[in-house]
Nucleic acid binder design. Structure first.
Lengths: 196, 196
DNA sequence: TTGCTAAACGGAACGGCGTTCCGTATCGTT
DNA sequence: AACGATACGGAACGCCGTTCCGTTTAGCAA
């Protein structure tokens, strides 16, 4: 859980030193470019910022999706791990669910354009969809189940669909002051409450 | 409110006959291609289907957005006009709102990829955003206000944001059987209910 | 230090896209 | 029949993600 994420035993020191250095440089450059130009910034911009050629970027990250995943891996992990923690520390499962969704929404909304590439259609980003959903859907499912068991929400809500929906609601949240994604997600979550 | 939509008096018969014919051919071809390949189909495909050159398509429709608008204009108008009708015929304003949103969602979900280009970011489709929103937001606002006045829903819901949210929820609804946009929109609308 | 090879590099090149531009063909009027 | 004005077609442009391959370099062995 430290260096490059493939987690094969000790360390992936098998690579050449310049390769490892370039990978780090690339990750830093990508993170910087994503902040200023958004996640959909041209690959060439990232390569230029890092001072490497295009071949280098594609050798380390076979597709743009892989680069995005690598840049945000830590934050996704943190979000995933926050789920059980919130469930343990909150007064009610529904409260934990709300706080966890807030975390996820904050994450998406502060990453210019990330929600847009996370969206359901758009082939070519399957790796990204898969990673986000594989990691977060189970966490969401656990929270939903706890809240449903406690009788706080409907019991027929699908975690996968909910995550996609929340992600979709976050699209275009920046650059449009009249569109408040957080508010809409709040309403959506409010809509989960068990009708009585 | 009949022929080509610019509404300047009698008719835009000032154009040459072949030009008018090509415009119709183009609209039909675009509609057909949108059904089979989605709204984001390459412009070249539409030109080929219509049997015209690229220049022709761009002379009639300066940008892809204009073509999409022209193709769906009738249905958007119908949706807009259904608003007041539903308000008059429904038992409660909230019921009318729900039915109207259903209409909008059905429209979006059955047009492969339309919701995706309607989304908030993505410059280059402003004309499309503007048309949809200018036409539908006032209708939505009227329904929201009626429901709020009747005390059925919160009174601090912005029509613009709601329309964008509903549109966003419809993104990627086709091609993913695990994602049920209609259901999520239902939940969002349920979340509008006044907390008591 | 030198020599060598596998590893890694850079960037030209490819295919696809939306859009522009202009030489050519056609319409419809005189 | 002749002649603008109008409209047409498609080559060409610029941008994109991605691929490919000739060149460079790290790291090791002699």
């Amino acid at each position: 859980m430290n260096d490059s994420g493939d987690g094969s035993g000790r360390a992936a020191q098998s690579k050449r030193a310049d390769a490892r250095r370039n990978k780090e440089t690339l990750l830093d450059a990508a993170a910087a470019v994503f902040v200023t130009s958004g996640v959909e910034a041209p690959v060439r911009d990232i390569a230029a910022k890092a001072g490497v050629g295009l071949g280098t970027i594609y050798r380390h990250f076979p597709t743009r999706a892989d680069l995005i995943i690598a840049v945000y891996r830590h934050q996704v992990e943190a979000c995933a791990e926050a789920g059980p923690a919130l469930l343990a520390s909150s007064a009610t499962p529904y409260g934990a669910l709300g706080q966890w969704i807030d975390l996820f929404v904050d994450f998406l909304v502060t990453k210019h354009g990330l929600a847009a590439v996370l969206r359901s259609d758009d082939a070519g980003f399957e790796a990204l969809h898969t990673y986000f959903l594989d990691r977060l859907v189970p966490v969401c499912a656990e929270l939903l189940e706890a809240a449903a068991t406690a009788g706080e929400i409907r019991s027929d809500v699908d975690a996968y669909a909910l995550m996609r929906g929340v992600g979709n609601l976050c699209i275009g949240a920046d650059g449009d002051s009249r569109y408040d994604a957080r508010r809409l997600v709040e309403l959506l979550i409010a809509g989960l409450r068990r009708p009585h």
